[in-house]
Simulated scan of single mutants.
Amino acid sequence: MPDPDPLTDLMPDLLRVARRLTRGADQSQDLCQEVLLKLWIRLDGGAEIDDLRAYAMTALRNQHRQSLRRDQIPLGAPEVVTITLPDAFDACALSDVMHAIARLPPDQERLMRLVAAGETSPADLARRTGLAPGTVMSRLARARARLRVDLGHKTAVPQT
Rank of each mutant, 00 (worst) to 15 (best):
P105F: 10
L39P: 01
A25R: 11
L60A: 05
F89I: 06
Q33C: 12
T129V: 04
A47C: 05
V80F: 10
T8K: 13
Q66N: 04
D50N: 06
L111W: 10
G24Y: 15
R16S: 06
A143Q: 06
R146G: 12
L140T: 00
R127N: 14
G152V: 05
A18S: 00
A126Q: 04
V115H: 12
P6T: 12
R103M: 08
L140H: 10
L15G: 01
L131S: 00
L151V: 12
A116E: 08
M112A: 00
S67V: 03
P12H: 07
V80I: 14
L36S: 02
S28P: 02
L85D: 04
V136D: 02
T120F: 06
E34R: 11
R16E: 07
V97A: 10
R69H: 01
L104Y: 07
T8Q: 14
G24F: 11
D13S: 14
A54H: 00
E119R: 04
D9I: 10
P12G: 06
D50F: 01
K38V: 08
V149Y: 12
L43C: 05
P133Q: 08
A156V: 04
I101K: 07
L36D: 01
S95N: 09
R53W: 02
D9G: 13
A47H: 05
A117L: 03
Q27V: 04
A59E: 00
M57D: 13
L7A: 09
I73T: 01
R16H: 11
G118Q: 04
G24S: 08
P2M: 13
T129C: 00
H64D: 10
D71A: 14
L31A: 04
A59V: 01
L14H: 07
A77I: 10
L131M: 05
G118V: 03
R128L: 05
Y55I: 05
A47V: 02
G130S: 03
P2Y: 15
D13R: 14
P106E: 15
T135D: 14
V136T: 01
G152F: 10
A117S: 10
G45S: 08
A141F: 15
A88Q: 10
S67Q: 14
A100L: 07
L140E: 04
H64K: 06
L14W: 11
L43M: 03
G152R: 00
A59N: 04
E109S: 13
L75Y: 11
A54W: 00
D107C: 03
A100Y: 07
L21T: 03
L52F: 01
P6R: 07
L36R: 08
A77N: 12
A25N: 12
D150T: 13
I83K: 15
D3G: 03
D150M: 14
T22E: 09
I41S: 07
Q33R: 15
R19Y: 12
A143H: 11
T135N: 11
D96S: 08
A93I: 03
Q108P: 05
H153N: 01
D51N: 00
L94P: 11
R42H: 14
D71W: 14
L147P: 03
L21G: 00
D44M: 06
L52K: 04
E48V: 02
P158V: 12
V81N: 05
A145E: 07
N62A: 07
K154N: 12
L85A: 05
L52M: 05
A126E: 02
P6Y: 08
T8C: 09
L151K: 11
D124M: 02
R113S: 04
L140C: 01
S138D: 06
P158K: 12
D13F: 10
T8A: 15
R65F: 05
L75M: 08
C92N: 13
